[in-house]
Design a protein around this nucleic acid. Structure first.
Lengths: 248, 248
DNA sequence: CGATTTCCTTGATCAGGATCAAACGAAAGG
DNA sequence: CCTTTCGTTTGATCCTGATCAAGGAAATCG
């Protein structure tokens, strides 16, 4: 009901949790007012599709809260996740109305949407939106390329450790950033979604999760709830840093 | 010697082969003049490194001719290519001077370079460069995500066929676009570079190339010279289109 | 010229992860 | 309540691609 309320009465941009991170970050005063004019909120339930690949998208928008995933599917059903969208991440491409990927909410999701035409007009007229979007797109490109390294060269264990590490860093960055203490968080993905992200099968994901638990790298309570007793220990399993887990 | 000449006497932008494709595509008149002012050409021999990961980059620029690759390397030496740069493609990121990847010329290469500081100033001052760069970055992001699907889900044979198909489409698009006739081109990559791009070993690349030759999908003359007698036949091996190679 | 190096091919064997299969726990539904 | 469904775990076996190893062809160099 509160979500429904959101739909009907969008919050003031000034109070928006992603105000300084999203595509609107650089806008102010009249620009922000213009964005506010063409925006509306939409809510999605966990599991619901935001867009289907090949469909027309009449809006572009930002994730306000929740997690969404981008997936590509081959003709024979093989799937690959190509993006994990967190609050402030942008969905859609100016100038191209046909969606190239499926976008799916994996948790309850709230999006701040802009009608396509006025948003595109604004991009052409004022530079701040385009500049911020460029910055965000360059970041996404870096992330995609880091993921290419993971998909092409990492072992199953390293893939799992990398994913947990990324989610932990972001999700728990708030609670105990530099603290050496245990970090805990909820996985926003099913085993199958993890497999689709990592280029594995769900069985391999499950086995490697069990292996990490057996080795004491993580603790599982309730399948989705992860506890990382020592973050450096987890990080040492990702293959990213030189030491194979023996230093630090 | 002609390359050296290029370095000293940059061509006029009006005569540039990538004029309407590169980051300068939208610029004209005074903007183009300004770019011309801060640009210079650099040549690299095949095999030479343009930048090393972690090094400072004092310029940004466009590939004018030749092919360059972006690679990431893990601490233990595993490598993954994360980009194939063709004429008009852009190198470097405004606002970040430290290169995150190795950039290597795989053929003789000419680049049109802009000094970082004035280029960044220009990005802030005039929208046309930033707008075009956004467009190009979005295209690269799409390409990176397509590659994620390849790395995560395609078989070795599909990977090779996809790579050949991409190079063929681009490289031979000029010679015989819609013609049903054979297409031929030179691979700009060694077997090892192909392996690094595709997330395979060079032995597997070699074996799959032999298999495609044995099956009549391609003909090899001189190891690097590829002839594709029937492009649709090659395309049917990439896994991209529904039909497993039995239609068409 | 022969020697070295670079790039590529091919063979034999191994192993990591896929596939096939069964079963479990929790939640949802009749 | 029992049944179904969904997400997950675990086991057995298979297979694709990696690894280890040897040798060939062409270019480069002394």
């Amino acid at each position: 009901m509160s979500l429904h309320a959101l739909k009907l009465a969008p919050q003031d941009c000034g109070a928006c949790p992603i105000r300084h991170l999203a595509v609107c970050a650089r806008c102010d005063g009249p620009e922000l007012a213009k964005l506010e004019e063409i925006k509306y909120y939409r809510s999605f339930q966990a599991g619901q599709n935001v867009v289907w690949s090949g469909d027309r998208m009449d809006f572009l928008g930002s994730v306000v809260s929740g997690i969404a995933i981008l997936t590509q599917t081959m003709a024979d059903g093989r799937r690959q996740m190509v993006g994990l969208l967190q609050p402030s991440d942008f969905v859609g491409r100016p100038g191209r109305a046909i969606a190239p990927y499926d976008v799916t909410a994996t948790t309850d999701l709230v999006m701040c949407c802009f009608r396509r035409k006025p948003f595109e007009d604004m991009m052409a007229a004022t530079p701040h939106v385009a500049q911020r979007l460029l910055e965000m797109t360059l970041d996404e490109l870096d992330a995609a390329r880091e993921w290419m390294l993971l998909l092409g060269r990492k072992t199953a264990r390293e893939k799992i450790a990398s994913l947990l590490s990324i989610i932990a860093r972001r999700d728990a960055g708030l609670q105990a950033k530099a603290a050496k203490g245990p970090i805990s968080f909820d996985l926003p993905l099913t085993r199958e979604e993890m497999a689709d992200y990592l280029g594995l099968t769900l069985e391999t994901v499950s086995r490697q999760m069990s292996a990490l638990k057996r080795d004491g790298v993580v603790t599982l309570e309730e399948k989705r709830r992860i506890v990382v007793p020592n973050f450096d220990r987890l990080a040492s399993q990702t293959g990213d840093d030189s030491d194979g887990g023996f230093r630090s």
